[in-house]
């Protein structure tokens, strides 16, 4: 799953390396409009529906947090 997440992120913002250990939001690698595209891509790729209340910066700050969000969304 991590590889697919990195691939989606890289397609979204090819100028950044998302395999590094960084806070994507703090570092300015993703803005709020990137999150809209990211949620749409994740929903299409993994067949989940992300709850609107989960669209918070902290849930998209790392590959691990995004993976955790997807897993939580699968359980709903």
């Amino acid at each position: 799953m991590k590889e697919i997440i990195v691939k989606i992120l890289t397609e979204l913002r090819p100028e950044f390396d998302f395999s590094v250990d960084a806070d994507f939001i703090e570092e300015g690698m993703l803005d709020s409009f990137d999150l809209v595209n990211l949620v749409s891509d994740i929903e299409n790729e993994f067949g989940v529906v992300i709850d609107g209340m989960d669209i918070l910066p902290e849930n998209f700050s790392s590959v691990e947090n995004i993976e955790s969000l997807i897993n939580r969304s699968k359980k709903r």
């Binding site: 979204l12 409009f33 809209v36 595209n37 949620v39 749409s40």
Partner: peptide
Amino acid sequence: TKCMKLKLAM
């Protein structure tokens, strides 16, 4: 490309 992705989502 980024703008067109946003077009679809928004």
